[in-house]
Computed example of a mutant assay.
Amino acid sequence: MPANRAFVLNSRPSRETPAGPHNFRYVESDIGEPGDGQVLVRHHYLSLDPYMRGRMNDAKSYAQPQPLGEVMVGGTVGEVVASRNPRFAVGDHVVGSGGWQLYSLSDGRGLRKIEGGTPMQAWLGPVGMPGVTAWYGVNKIIAPQAGETVVVSAATGAVGSVVGQLAKLAGAKAVGIAGGAAKCEFAVKELGYDICVDHSDADFGDRLKAALPDGINGIFENVGGKPFEQAMLWLNPFARIALCGLVASGYDGTPTPLPDVRVLLNTRSRMEGFIVSDHMALWPQALGELAGHVAAGRIRWRETVAQGLEAAPQAFFAMLKGGNFGKQLVKLVE
Rank of each mutant, 00 (worst) to 15 (best):
L124Y: 03
Q145F: 05
A122P: 03
G74I: 00
D58P: 09
E16M: 11
R15G: 15
S47T: 06
R87M: 12
R42I: 08
V71K: 02
T156R: 01
H43F: 06
G117I: 12
R112I: 11
H22F: 07
G20C: 05
I142K: 04
Q38W: 04
M56P: 06
V132C: 07
A143N: 15
G125E: 06
K140V: 10
E16I: 10
P119Q: 13
S97L: 13
S153C: 08
R55T: 04
M52E: 09
G69P: 02
G78L: 03
Y103R: 00
G128A: 11
G157A: 11
G128P: 00
G116E: 13
A146V: 12
R53D: 07
L102Y: 03
G37F: 10
A146C: 09
L46W: 01
M120N: 05
R112T: 15
G54C: 06
V132Q: 02
W135H: 12
K60P: 10
S106Y: 06
Y136P: 00
P34C: 04
E79C: 06
E16D: 15
V95N: 01
L48P: 02
H44K: 14
A63R: 12
S47F: 01
D92I: 00
L46P: 08
E115G: 12
G110A: 07
L124N: 00
V73C: 08
Y103T: 04
P34T: 08
G128R: 04
Y51G: 02
T118D: 11
S97R: 12
